[in-house]
Design a protein around this nucleic acid. Structure first.
Lengths: 233, 233
DNA sequence: ATAATAAATGTAATTTATACATTAATTAAT
DNA sequence: ATTAATTAATGTATAAATTACATTTATTAT
């Protein structure tokens, strides 16, 4: 058997596989990121994304969901693969590749308690501290993917409470796209897709109060099956 | 030390990391994919993407370039990460995750000779055979990424010879998008970006002959720096 | 000289995106 | 009770982009 084929049969180089979670949340009109104090040397105590090594009998997605559940107590969180980071020298400790996945979660007080127990902190995306290794790059890449995805699929709703107002939705898109949108044009556009259900309730955090809406998953599913394009702004 | 932290310090589960190459080419107006006869059991002799295990001291990108060079003799091929495949049971042999990368190469006779030596074959993308494992899925996903990318960045030129005609370019975009385009509108649009240089030569495979163009990398670089959007159709 | 082929070209109609200012509902203060 | 303050809600005109569509031109083969 040739050396080449032998390698193929019995490859010798196993590598640690990790997954790191870019956890986005939305609060007070700001896009936020959940970061953690690193618990191990080297760089112990530095800010870091949360991650885990992938276990031998575990899907990579499972590993990420496991980590998220440990931290937030939530199951079935929306998550998308961002990309993998495979540079040989990316981690000074081990040879370790990482598959970055971004998660969208609804921030609420319950989450925040759990989160604090893990020494974590919600940072505004515009005010992130330095993170260990290539984690800042991971955040930038994931944000780019989120921007892309949000433009064509209504994943933004994963970041909002079930009931939300149009101005809240606009703030969210402004935070994701990092630019301002015209209120009239925005409202026209999102309502034109007919996937929002107007409720009889109002959110009363402003003086006048704004009507609450919810996302119509049923209509949405029908529309995507018919090839409808959900471009927003 | 807690069990959790100990795991973190000395993780036990190393995993084989592979990279698989989705190699696109363009010939006779068709988008094509380079596939190989699998050389090892199980599934020996079945059609497969080409790939390799990533070596312990090798970047994942390096591994893919190494494989590509072995097969085609070409260095510095255009390549983009598609996504990773991390299901625990995806490969019946080993626990192995794979990072799929798609490559765009200019098919020519020289390549084809080298390629045939490796038991490979250029299949039209519309007529792909069954591939081993999750490789058909990898192709579908990579094609989707290629479509996305081609819409906003002129990567299609990586698939064409240095000199090409507008009708060839149109055929290429039709093959990638898998739909037909209007010749007048297409020409207007691509020329409007001012990144094509018209040459004095004609390609004479048709009776009338069509003017050859080349891509103006310099102007392109300037334009992207100024934030220009290269949407094509 | 003619026929066959594919390249090259312009315009009008439609759709989509953009810019922009006022009125309406409600609460807090007096 | 009246007024002021705040933010939600709304329409229209203009500009820009996209789409649909048919004829002429250059060249080669007969």
């Amino acid at each position: 058997m040739s050396a080449e084929l032998k390698d193929f049969y019995a490859p010798q180089d196993k590598i640690y596989v990790a997954t790191d979670c870019i956890i986005f949340g939305f609060e007070e009109g700001k896009l936020k990121l959940l970061v953690f104090k690193r618990r191990v040397e080297p760089l112990k105590g530095e800010w870091s994304l949360i991650g885990s090594f992938v276990k031998i009998d575990e899907d990579v997605e499972e590993a990420a969901q496991r980590v998220l559940e440990e931290i937030t107590g939530l199951k079935d969180i929306f998550m998308e693969q961002s990309r993998s980071y495979g540079a040989a020298q990316r981690d000074p400790g081990y040879r370790c590749i990482s598959i970055a996945q971004y998660a969208l979660i609804r921030i609420n007080d319950y989450d925040k308690e759990l989160v604090e127990k893990h020494g974590a902190h919600w940072y505004e995306i515009e005010e992130l501290p330095n993170l260990v290794l290539d984690h800042n790059q991971m955040v930038m890449d994931a944000l780019e993917k989120l921007k892309q995805k949000a433009r064509y699929q209504p994943i933004g709703f994963e970041l909002l409470p079930e009931k939300f107002t149009i101005p809240q939705l606009q703030q969210l898109y402004e935070a994701i796209y990092q630019n301002e949108l015209d209120a009239r044009n925005f409202r026209k556009k999102v309502l034109s897709h007919n996937v929002l259900i107007k409720l009889d309730e109002k959110d009363k955090t402003s003086r006048r109060g704004a009507f609450l809406y919810k996302f119509d998953h049923g209509t949405y599913q029908k529309l995507i099956k018919s090839g409808y394009n959900f471009e927003i702004s």
